[in-house]
Amino acid sequence: MPAALDKRTYRSPLLHQILHGGGGVALNLLRHGARDDGAQFFDNSALNQSVIFKYPRFEYELENDSEVDYATQNKWLSICRPIETAIYVPQMLEAPERGGYAIYMRQRNYPDLIREHIGIEIDDVLSPSNADIVKLKIIDEIPSLDPFLLKATFDQYKIAIPPVFLRLAREEEVIIKTMITQRIMPVVGRALDLGPTEIRDKCEKFVQAIWNPGLPEASLFTEALRLERRQAGPVFIAWKGITFYQMQFERGLEKIRDILHWLGTREAVPYDMHLHMIHRDQHEMFKATVERKLRNAVSKVKQVLHNYDFAYRTLVDGNDPLPFRDFLVTANARYWVLGYCCMCMNHCRNIFDRSLSRSNHGMLSFAQFGQLLSNMDTVLNSQTALDYRINP
Results as ranks from 00 to 15, higher is better:
Glu121Met: 12
Cys342Lys: 11
Asn360Phe: 06
Lys177Pro: 01
Asp6Asn: 11
Ser374Pro: 00
Glu97Leu: 06
Leu315Val: 14
Gln156Glu: 07
Ser129Thr: 15
Lys158Thr: 08
Val235His: 10
Arg81Trp: 04
Tyr10Asn: 09
Val187Glu: 01
Trp262Cys: 00
Pro96Ser: 07
Phe206Val: 12
Gly38Ile: 15
Gly119Ser: 08
Asn307Ser: 09
His347Thr: 08
Asn350Trp: 10
Leu62Glu: 14
Met343Asp: 13
Gly339Glu: 10
Ile161Gln: 02
Val207Pro: 02
Pro128Trp: 10
Gln49Cys: 07
Ala268Gln: 01
Val51Glu: 02
Arg167Gln: 13
Pro321Arg: 09
Gln156His: 01
Val187Trp: 02
Arg35Asp: 08
Phe327Pro: 07
Lys7Ala: 12
Asp37His: 06
Lys75Pro: 00
Gly23Ala: 09
Ala3Lys: 12
Ala95Gln: 08
Phe327Met: 08
Thr197Ile: 05
Ser45Phe: 09
Ser78Val: 14
Leu294Glu: 13
Ala152Pro: 01
Thr153Pro: 03
Gln282Met: 10
Gln371Pro: 04
Ile122Cys: 07
Ile180His: 01
His283Gly: 00
Asn319Gly: 10
Leu14Asn: 03
Val68Thr: 15
Asn350His: 13
Tyr70Leu: 10
Arg295Ala: 14
Leu260Asp: 00
Pro213Cys: 03
Ile176Pro: 01
Ala86Gly: 14
Ser382Cys: 06
Asp124Phe: 01
Met92Gln: 14
Leu386Ile: 06
Leu220His: 09
Arg229Met: 08
Arg35Tyr: 11
Ser357Arg: 14
Asn109Leu: 14
Leu338Trp: 06
Ala86Asn: 06
Asn64Gln: 13
Thr378His: 09
Thr384Ile: 14
Ala209Lys: 06
Ile390Glu: 05
Phe310Leu: 11
Pro392Arg: 09
Met247Pro: 00
Ser382Leu: 04
His20Leu: 13
Leu194Glu: 03
Glu84Leu: 00
Arg313Cys: 08
Asp65Ile: 15
Ala333Asp: 12
Ile87Asp: 02
Arg292Lys: 09
Phe310Ser: 10
Pro270Gly: 06
Arg354Cys: 04
Phe324Cys: 11
Arg190Gln: 13
Glu67Tyr: 06
Asp155Trp: 05
Gly241Trp: 15
Arg389His: 05
Gly362Ala: 10
Arg81Gln: 15
His16Val: 03
Ile161Val: 15
Phe165Met: 04
Pro321Cys: 09
Arg230Gln: 12
Pro323Thr: 13
Ser365Arg: 05
Pro213Val: 03
His16Leu: 10
Arg389Gly: 01
Val337Ala: 05
Leu386Val: 03
Ile176Trp: 04
Ala160Arg: 02
Ile176Phe: 04
Val290Asn: 06
Val187Ala: 03
Arg31Ile: 10
Asn28Ile: 15
His20Ser: 12
Asn109Thr: 15
Thr85Met: 11
Leu136Met: 05
Asn130Lys: 03
Arg389Val: 11
Glu84Tyr: 00
Pro392Leu: 02
Ser359Lys: 07
Asn346Cys: 07
Ser299Cys: 09
Ser50Gln: 10
Phe42Tyr: 14
